[in-house]
Amino acid sequence: MNTISIGVGMFLLTVGVFFAAKKFAVKYKNPILNPTLTTTIIIIIILVSLNIPYETYMDGGKWLHELLGPTVVALAFPLYKYKELLLKYFQPVLVSIFLAVTLNLITVYIILNLLGYTKEMIFTALPKSITTAVAVQIAGQIGGIPSLTAVFVMIAGFTGAIIGPYLLKIFKFDHTIARGMAFGNASHAIGTAKAFEDNLETGSISSAGMILSAILSSFLIPFLVWILF
C-alpha cells in the first residue's frame, strides 16, 4: 500500500471511530465517555494489535491535526460573543485567570521538581491546564513532548469534570462566576462541558476562562521558561 491510501485509511478510521464514540457519549451521559478519549483508546488498540507505528498513522492523522490551528483562531468568535458577560464580571474574572495561570505553573514546576523529573518533562507538563489545541502548540514551541502534553491536558480535564463538582460542594462555591471560572481555568474544554450542565451562564463563563487562560499562558509560559532555564 502506498502512503496516500494508508493516509486515507487512517483518516477514515479516525473519523468513523470518533462519530461512533460521540453517538455513544450522547446516549450515556458520563464524562468518562469523552469522545476524544474513547476514540484515542480504540485507535491505539487497533494500531498496536496491527503493529502499525504512530508515524504511519500520522500520514492520515496529520490532515486532522493541521485543522487545530484554524480551530484555535475560531475561539475568537465565542470570546467575542461573551464579551458583555466578561465586562460585567471584569474584576473577578481577571484576578481569577491570573491566579489560575500562575498557580498552575508554580504547582507543576514544584511537584515535578520534587519528583525529580527532567527539564523536558516539566516543559511537557506546564501547559496541562489549557485547552489541548493551544497546549500542544506551546509544548512544541518550548521543547516539550506535545503528544504527552495532550495526555496531561486530558488528565487535568477529567480531574475538573469528575472531582470538580465535589470540590464545589465541599467549599460551598455557589456563585455562577466562581463555578464557571473554576471549570474553565483548571479543566479547559472537558470542564466547560461539565459547566454547561449547571446552566448557560456558567458554561459561557467557563468557555471564556478557558480561552483567556490559554491566551495568558501562551504569553507567560515561554517567558517563564526563558527566565528559569
Binding site: T14, V15, F18, K22, N34, P35, T36, L37, T39, T40, I43, I44, L47, V48, Y54, Y57, M58, G61, K62, L64, H65, L67, L68, P70, T71, A74, L75, F77, P78, T132, A133, V136, P146, S147, L148, A150, V151, M154, A189
Partner: peptide, 18 residues
Amino acid sequence: LLSLMPLFLVPATVGVMN
C-alpha cells in the same frame, strides 16, 4: 470548527502510544 475540535485532537492524543 469548534464543534469538531474533539476530533482534531485525536491524532495528537494517539501519540501517547510512543
